[in-house]
Design a protein around this nucleic acid. Sequence first.
DNA 1: TCTCATTGTGCAAACGGTTGCGTTAAGGTG
DNA 2: CACCTTAACGCAACCGTTTGCACAATGAGA
Lengths: 320, 320
Amino acid sequence: MAVTIRDVAHACGVHVSTVSRTFSAPHMVNAETRTRVLAAAEELGYRPNRAARSLTTGRTGNLGLIVADLANPFFPPLIKAAQAAARGQDYHLFVADTDEDPAEEQDLVLAFSKQVDGIVLCSPRLSNKALGKLAEAIPFVLVNRRLRGVPTVVMDVAHGARTAMEHLTGLGHRRVALVSGPAGSWTSGEIRRAVTGMPGLETTVIGPNAPTEKGGIAAAEQVAAAGVTGVLAYNDLVAIGLIEGLEERGVRVPGDVSVIGIDDSITGRLHRPKLTTVAMPTADAGRMAVDLLVKSMSAATVLETHLVVRESTAPPKGLP
Amino acid sequence: MAVTIRDVAHACGVHVSTVSRTFSAPHMVNAETRTRVLAAAEELGYRPNRAARSLTTGRTGNLGLIVADLANPFFPPLIKAAQAAARGQDYHLFVADTDEDPAEEQDLVLAFSKQVDGIVLCSPRLSNKALGKLAEAIPFVLVNRRLRGVPTVVMDVAHGARTAMEHLTGLGHRRVALVSGPAGSWTSGEIRRAVTGMPGLETTVIGPNAPTEKGGIAAAEQVAAAGVTGVLAYNDLVAIGLIEGLEERGVRVPGDVSVIGIDDSITGRLHRPKLTTVAMPTADAGRMAVDLLVKSMSAATVLETHLVVRESTAPPKGLP
DNA sequence: TCTCATTGTGCAAACGGTTGCGTTAAGGTG
DNA sequence: CACCTTAACGCAACCGTTTGCACAATGAGA
């Protein structure tokens, strides 16, 4: 049915090994033979079978990418960049989604392990211990999680969170809330560590929360009750949900409460109010993660973040 | 290094074929032996090598999913559902992105063809002829494209577009524009065919346009100059860009011009104005596409769409 | 007691490539 | 002219599984 290396060999009267070499080690075969083989291969529509190849070489030419939630707009740009980077180096990319479930995350890594050369694990929810164990079975790089001995690319969300809080203090806010993310999120912990104890700021932590719009809506009541004038949300989805929830309760944003998101992931600039947020270089992260994997480098890369001030923040009520 | 079927066989004193059968045909092996083998496999952490398996069976256990643009919010829910459906049937999913480039689309199909059992091709930009040729090489199912002989799942965008236009006429609009999509988009053609010649409506077609926010912004000038009071845009991204572009020109939405999008893909409900749009069952489409593929059924499935009226549409100026 | 199924396993040949090694012929050197 | 090197290619084993077939053991029926 499918055309194999043998068909090509037969078609131009050479041995299969010669055909194999024209593809995997072209310099080892005579120029004239090579063109003949290539012509025959083209003619027959030959495409090497990667499964067969991987059997002897031990390399599959595939990578895996695992994210917490494909529907979270934070991830698609990362996936897109990762896919482009992979394809640019002749790798194919498996993509999967854990639905924020650590057990599923582990299963996926294991399921992928035999058919990929490496895995990009984004925003893992697994414990460090579990991750360490998995790292022995299959090379991977972590995105938005630090773990010693494992290549990592993280975005400097701590810096972003601090900048966001400084923006709030600069506007005159003193009592603020941090609406944190899900348990198991390293990013959420980073943000918390970064902002607790910042001078001139009294911070209430609310959470853990689902990293979704619903999570934000659900957190609105506690935020409204907390007597704060500013909020930093775990991500843009939560921020948006929070704004919705607050406005349902008659709390105006940014009139009564200022809200800052994280990720700058919301499509379209037509929000009301336009969201002040911490921009994350997600595409860079995706690209770098697969580069690290392919070149099997072990590095800890930190990507910069920056605050984008839009309209969801303002001075607290009563100030000029 | 990796633990193979031979290790397991040796560990419990049976032949490799017995081990193989305990996994692929459990009923053929004695219950006691089976438990012994399973125990040893578990103990050693054995995972069958899919590449090796696919070599003899001819099936890979992988599927491919190709979309026009991963960053277009229309696709992630579809991908998420497709991935979940695939995983539920023990398939793994390659995901790739053509960046709206037909040549890349073809290359991807060919590149995938040897290592997947089938491909889901979403919103293809290839010609029918090219698609027909590819369909001979590898089974696939088309999403949002009709092609005789090829299994298909389409969303009834024609109906959605007509409903949208009826909504506009119901509000009193007479002169409207259709801001169409990219060349090669079947959906765009469907929309156009559906709305041209609708009674009581004079429709200007503007396009082709890139299916992005930028495309919408770029189309704003022509829309503003067309003397229309209502617009149906190719998708939500275009609609949003269009609204931005119009407002930059001092044209208010929906005050001066009503705008309807398609897809209902925009995250968050905080837009100003909230977008009236045609909702598409993208998740259903993703799930059904992989089901069709896995069960290798050849069907033409049509999914319903419906109009979601929000705030970007209103009666034309001068009417009560 | 002698077939004859039936059940559970082992054996070995594939599947489509890769790769170390052996062979051949051509060219270079003394 | 004998020898050695080198380039180009053929040969065959191997990668990890599956699967048709052969074989042995068991139990049932005659």
